[in-house]
Nucleic acid binder design. Structure first.
Lengths: 259, 259
DNA sequence: TTCAATTGTGTATAGTTTACACAATAATAG
DNA sequence: CTATTATTGTGTAAACTATACACAATTGAA
């Protein structure tokens, strides 16, 4: 098992790695998938290394798939983190101690605190379909609310901040939701997704008018039952139109958000 | 001399490097600084490597300074290029041949065709103040018009395409011009800068109205003389207000441009 | 002095964004 | 069964923003 890790570390690029900020949406809240390192209370973003024959993009997909079980996800590079010292909340020696607890083995020959530049990706995934799987270093993989994140290893809090910024900016020229919501959803649910990404309330009527004007939704002849009060209609994305909007770009007018 | 290069290559990160797309503006055209490799007709973007103690950002500044002589520039990371094979216009072996011509020495121990992930930055610089300086590999450093670029080494044509896209997007939420124009400039000059970045014509009156509304310009009581026809007024950026607009963001309405 | 090219300037129209309220519906509690 | 409560569905008017557009003034050159 340790041999497996060693082989992985030795067979992959040493100075570059990938970290993924995986966004999910559940119970009206935007959440992020974090990993807890074995035998510790230290949390980090899911990440991984790149094989020599693999593009960075493919590596990011692979890592994402390994942690969530999902194949089809929205994945996007947003920034590369290249500080010489990326130990922000915990010093290099504190981090090393955590690693020692985690690995219970002498891996000093692998130089695990060597400098690594990390390429940051963010992903949008369907919460319900995710089966969180820890990696070799970790024993727990679970969703965290964005407002309740712990202090993370390395510069991962910074990464999440920038991922959120990138996601918000994304909202200005691309539709979002296909990979974050279940197949069928209601207008209020979609609105709450946008609100939780933007961190502010939107007007119900104006939101509906705007989102419908992009012509990416199909209104279904069913309603969501079981909820108290009036039943909202169900919608789903028209995949083709959605893809077209993604590639051509759309001008979303969330101007109130300053970047 | 060769020893110097060898020392540089051996003392810097091996799997990660930086490439810079340096934009300048001259004669009503947006231009890019390219390097020609010694003894060849092969061109590339200026790039360089990262020292172990240096952040990626600092390395990018250093490289930029080395090639242009400039200290104060606008520099921004826009994408990291991580294809397993980044030899696009010229194959690895063709590129290797060029390198051999350039170096006239056996450097095979340095494994110069090993895989490298490149972090792409774009820079905006004041054309007139740049003193282009070739690096060790190259013997010529000059400006190229964007519409007349040659086939470049590696994936550099792709990089330039993405840099331009990033620059255009930038225009939507930040003012641009401080680092691209001389201290004093006319409204038509500023407009031509915007037009050359966006690749389309803008209305003179509407452009002026818009740019003035951002309250980042100071109108000077002088005019540019010597030009045929009516003399335009000179303006300059109010540095403080410009910086505020940069950090707070501005909503530039170039909606016609689809991304 | 005339000509040609370019600058400076304002307004009206179209289009977009925003603010806002009431009737309909569905589950729940009585 | 009925009343209550919370939430949904829906349209219009006002404010704001973007766009289209033309003529007089200025300058150097002919």
């Amino acid at each position: 098992m340790k041999q497996e890790l060693r082989a992985y570390l030795e067979s992959t690029l040493k100075e570059v790695a990938i970290d993924c900020t995986i966004f999910g949406f559940h119970a009206h809240e935007l959440k992020i998938l974090l990993l807890r390192w074995k035998g510790t209370n230290a949390w980090s973003l899911p990440g991984g290394r790149i094989f020599p024959e693999e593009s960075v993009q493919s590596a990011a997909y692979r890592i994402l798939q390994e942690r969530t079980g999902l194949k089809e996800v929205f994945l996007q590079q947003f920034h590369t983190f290249g500080d010489a010292d990326r130990y922000k909340n915990f010093s290099a020696s504190e981090t090393l101690k955590i690693l020692e607890k985690t690995l219970e083995e002498d891996l000093s020959d692998l130089d695990l605190t060597a400098r690594v530049v990390s390429i940051g990706y963010f992903a949008l995934v369907e919460f319900e379909q995710v089966v969180p799987v820890p990696d070799f270093y970790t024993e727990e993989c679970r969703w965290w609310e964005i407002s309740e994140l712990p202090l993370l290893l390395f510069d991962h809090n910074e990464m999440i901040g920038m991922a959120l910024k990138a996601l918000r900016r994304q909202l200005n020229y691309q539709p979002i939701g296909y990979n974050l919501l279940p197949e069928k959803f209601t207008m209020p649910e979609l609105q709450k997704l946008y609100e939780s990404i933007l961190g502010r309330q939107l007007d119900r009527r104006n939101f509906q008018k705007m989102i419908l004007s992009y012509d990416i939704l199909e209104k279904l002849p069913e309603k969501r039952r079981g909820t108290a009060n009036r039943s909202p209609f169900l919608y789903r994305f028209d995949k083709q139109k959605y893809e077209r909007a993604l590639s051509e770009g759309i001008f979303f007018p969330f101007q109130g958000e300053k970047f």
